[in-house]
């Protein structure tokens, strides 16, 4: 990753244009050619520095729901439980954290009622109590990580 890649990442965290030639618009801003910009985005996705390029949806606005959940997993079962939980397409990400509640994941769905089903299914399949912590309020900050 070089200075140009960093510029691209920082710029795209602020959004992407909705117009006929959006790559050209961004390329002009960054003083690149359109072809070079596209090639670099492709490469950043391929090596995994970018995990996604495109739209991020709002589960609630689609009629669905989103939550943060956690489970206390006995250490020897860790990989097994992670596998069960990650197999759900509704699980957006999953992290191990240094606490008794050691596995934290986000569940998101566009289907009404599906969220509770997923939580129930995870409880059944893992035999663990799922702590369900949907947001009550968001204090806006705008996540942006300087590359």
């Amino acid at each position: 990753m070089d200075v140009i890649d960093k510029k691209i990442i920082n710029y795209l965290q602020g959004g992407f244009p909705i117009c006929e030639s959006p790559y050209q618009v961004v390329a002009n801003q960054l003083e690149l050619t359109e072809a070079e910009l596209i090639k670099r985005i492709e490469n950043l996705l391929e090596v995994g520095i970018l995990s996604r390029f495109g739209p991020l949806y709002h589960a609630e606005q689609m009629g669905g729901a989103l939550t943060l959940a956690a489970v206390k997993v006995p250490e020897q079962q860790f990989d097994h439980i992670a596998e069960i939980i990650n197999a759900f397409p509704e699980v957006a990400h999953n992290y191990e954290r240094n606490h008794e509640l050691n596995m934290w994941f986000v569940v998101a769905t566009d289907l009404p009622g599906r969220l509770t089903e997923v939580i129930d299914e995870i409880q059944q399949k893992t035999g663990l109590k799922v702590y369900n912590m949907p947001k009550i309020n968001e204090y806006f900050v705008g996540l942006k990580l300087e590359a």
Partner: peptide, 24 residues
């Protein structure tokens, strides 16, 4: 409490169904 992340198992965003099905 402060909980640092140790490992990431999954980070690709949720896959939505996106079907205007009956439930919806």
């Amino acid at each position: 409490e402060v909980l640092f992340s140790k490992q990431c198992f999954k980070q690709r965003g949720a896959l939505y169904q996106m079907s205007p099905d009956q439930e919806k």
